[in-house]
Design a protein around this nucleic acid. Structure first.
Lengths: 197, 197
DNA sequence: TTGAACCTAACGAACGTTCGTGTACTTTTG
DNA sequence: CAAAAGTACACGAACGTTCGTTAGGTTCAA
């Protein structure tokens, strides 16, 4: 079939990962086969194994790349000296931008992490849990300082995270509304609420 | 292995569907095998086929039962003579209650519908699209009547639907907060917003 | 005694992965 | 400078397993 096309900026392994993220998103991890992936990459299935060790490794790389970016962002924002409500807004903006930039990868890490093999599965779950706790802590600070309404912080975090992940659906119909507009809409609704005060 | 236990209220087929919903939620449709399902039901894999025609039929039933309830609810609410913001609130309350009651089924129909076979796949997608449009129309009415802030209605719908589906995560740690509390928290945040006005 | 419910055994298809080999560069050596 | 050795990458064939499903016989309640 021929070689995998690359330039100096991107390795053949990275090409496979990018295509895998797309395929896993489209079909789901289990339903996507290595033969299909090979087709998309333009090579025979066996040839993939010159670059990767297993199908599971692909999922692993995708999930942990995303998780790492989340953690880095949280480190930065926690260090900032701004109001809690502004921190919440900043986190939301990061999440939205991140989804727009790494659409396939984020989708896969959100929906297919169950298929990670141990011990990575536990590790991944821990990272997500920690992230949510740190997010909730910021909201609780905001409540104490009366910047944020008295709400159950962990519930608020769940709502915000899931609300943001709704962008995937939007992404399918790009034409209708652009990324920046979408971001503003989301912030308005989630931070300000629907009611016209 | 023995017979499937039933009473007069619930057929053997329904027992299989209930267990299938649980298994599909836990493992995903593709990763869940008929042999596993048989184990859970307490029977050999082949015996399942005395009650169902295929694995796909199980997914079909689960997805369309949920979709039907959504549509019925929308019919009712559209017919009501109340304010738009109150209709939105009612829809949200329905969605939350529905998730709490039919946790596994809703989860499966949300995440595994991709694996439906045609022509049911197209049918399902149409139903969901229609539902979102009707929801968006209610929000737009609210905007016209100045009950609701000027926001992009389709975006608002996506946010609300995904936010509500976040309850799944909550469901895993039932002890911490009960269903009614959760419902109030969600309405407060989604309708009223986070900011303390 | 009939029919629903279950069993064991087996089917072909698809899966992830391994193997041995071929080929075309690149590097090392005489 | 040319031959040899090494490396990177791709191939087709095959592996052992698991999958959904079917065929045909058995059990058991009504």
């Amino acid at each position: 079939m021929g070689r995998i096309k690359t330039d100096t900026n991107i390795s053949r392994k990275e090409v496979i990962i990018i295509k895998a993220a797309e395929l896993f998103k489209e079909k789901g991890f289990k339903a996507a086969s290595m033969r299909e992936l090979a087709d998309v990459v333009g090579v025979e299935a066996a040839s993939l194994y010159n670059h990767i060790s297993s199908k599971g490794e692909l999922l692993h790389i995708i999930c942990f790349d995303v998780a790492e970016r989340y953690m880095k962002m949280m480190d930065d924002i926690e260090a900032e000296k701004t109001s809690s409500i502004f921190k919440v807004e900043k986190i939301l903006r990061f999440l939205i931008t991140n989804i727009v930039l790494y659409y396939n990868e984020v989708h896969v890490s959100d929906r297919e992490w169950k298929h990670l093999a141990e011990p990575f599965l536990s590790d991944y779950q821990n990272q997500r849990r920690t992230f949510r706790r740190r997010f909730a802590a910021i909201i609780e600070q905001g409540i104490k300082k009366k910047e944020i309404k008295k709400v159950d912080a962990p519930t608020a975090v769940l709502i915000l995270l899931h609300a943001v992940s709704g962008i995937e659906s939007w992404h399918r119909s790009k034409e209708k509304i652009n990324g920046k507009e979408l971001e503003e809409s989301m912030i308005t609704i989630l931070v300000g609420g629907l009611v016209n005060h």
